[in-house]
Each structure stands twice: as C-alpha cells, then as structure tokens.
C-alpha cells in the first residue's frame, strides 16, 4: 500500500495543507515528552489523546479517513477507561492527604504520590528522552525498513521507543499503561503501512481497549501485603 499525497474522504480528495507530516511528527514528539516529563495524570492523559489524533492523521495517508478516525475513537475509549481509574486513584490520594494529621504527614503523602509515578527524577527523564530522540532520528534518517517513507518510519519507531521508555521509567501501573498504548500506536503505524489487512487494523484497535481495561483493572486492585514479599511460600 503506497502512501498518497492526500487523504480520501467519502470519495473526495482532501489535501492536508496545514497538517503536514512535519507538524504531525513535531506533535508526536511534544505529546510523548509531556507523558514522560510531566507527572500529572491529566496532562499525560490529554497528551495520550492528542497522540491518538496525530497518529490517526499520519494513518490517514494510508487508509481512508473514516478508518483513521476509528483509531481516534479507540484512543478516546482507552483514555476514558484510564481516566476513571486515574480519578479514583487521585481521590484516594486526596483522602490520604485529608487524613494526614500534620504538615509533615501531608508532605510524606504528597512525596509518596510523586514518587509513585516514575522511578527516576525529572533531569534523568529529560536526558533519557533526548537520547531516545537522537537515536530514533538517527535510525529513521539512515536506514530503510520494508520500504517505508522516513516520516512513517520515524513516527512508528518514535512511538515504539517512547512506549518502552515510559514503561521502563514508570513506577505506576497506569503510567505503564500509557507506555503500552504508545507502543501499540507506533506499531499500528508500521503494521498499517506494511500490511493491507483491515482485520488486523481493527484488531489492533480492539487490543488497545483490552490493554487499557486490564491496566485499569490491575491499577484498581489493592496490593497484597507489601511486607510479605515472598508470597505463596511453600511450607
């Protein structure tokens, strides 16, 4: 399937003048940076949603626009699933803060919450993001993969690498879920560009919802006793 220079919508051709590849790729870089650098869940969820819109714009050159919009819809549903879980976790955090008896306790709760999102601090995340960005730019500009154009290759690889980075840096299941969804977005771009199967495209969208659901389920469950590290020890 070759990438046309314009998108089709209900049989009519619509030129993407304002929404060029460079804009889309810049948007992908910004949204991923927000997910990795900002600990606030609302910003991260908004960035994920924006990432889905941008990915769909990139896919619009490969599949008809209505099909590309399906990607936005599945992203919106996945974001909705994660939103309710994030909000519940935030409510729990607020309740813990309210129950804290003095400023010192409140500081401990607030610090614990911040620590739970990422395993490393802001400077290291900036450094890691920069390294990944340079690496992906180098790969996408110097190699070819299954005959993909460089913008598609960069978009796909960038999201895949960012997804793995988010997963590595996350201490929180929901943030790791965002990483997994970034990975599947990147893979969806590569897969749609190399395969013409609409069924696979549909399954990727369904699997996004399933992954969001399982991540939300795992995040909502209270952990087993944290002190009993060796759970299920044989007698």
């Amino acid at each position: 399937m070759r990438r046309p220079s314009s998108v089709t919508f209900s049989g009519e051709r619509m030129t993407l003048v304002d929404f060029s590849s460079a804009t889309i790729l810049s948007g992908l870089i910004i949204t991923v940076a927000l997910i990795i650098l900002v600990a606030d869940w609302r910003v991260a969820l908004f960035a994920l949603l924006a990432q889905y819109v941008l990915s769909a714009s990139l896919l619009a050159g490969l599949v008809p626009l209505p099909l590309a919009i399906v990607r936005v819809l599945s992203g919106a549903f996945a974001a909705a699933i994660l939103y309710f879980t994030f909000r519940r976790a935030a409510d729990n955090h607020r309740r813990d803060l309210a129950q804290a008896e003095d400023d010192a306790a409140r500081l401990v709760v607030a610090r614990l919450y911040r620590l739970q999102v990422f395993v490393v601090g802001f400077p290291f995340r900036v450094f890691a993001l920069a390294l990944v960005a340079v690496g992906i730019v180098g790969i996408a500009s110097s190699m070819t993969f299954l005959g993909l154009s460089s913008d598609l290759l960069f978009g796909g690889l960038w999201l895949i690498a960012a997804g793995v980075l988010v997963a590595i840096l996350s201490r929180d299941v929901l943030r790791l879920g965002l990483g997994i969804l970034l990975f599947t977005s990147g893979f969806a771009i590569l897969e749609t560009a190399t395969e013409s199967s609409l069924l696979l495209y549909g399954l990727i969208n369904i699997s996004d919802l399933l992954l969001a659901l399982v991540c939300a389920h795992l995040a909502a469950l209270p952990p087993t006793d944290g002190l009993r590290r060796r759970r299920g020890e044989l007698r």
């Binding site: 739970q116 299941v173 795992l218 952990p223 087993t224 944290g226 759970r231």
Partner: peptide
C-alpha cells in the same frame, strides 16, 4: 499486584 509503589510482573 503484589506491592504498592512499583509496577508488578503482571503489568
């Protein structure tokens, strides 16, 4: 999930 404050094996 086994313990709070880190991503577990299932995730």
């Amino acid at each position: 999930p086994q313990s709070e404050g880190r991503v577990g094996g299932a995730a």
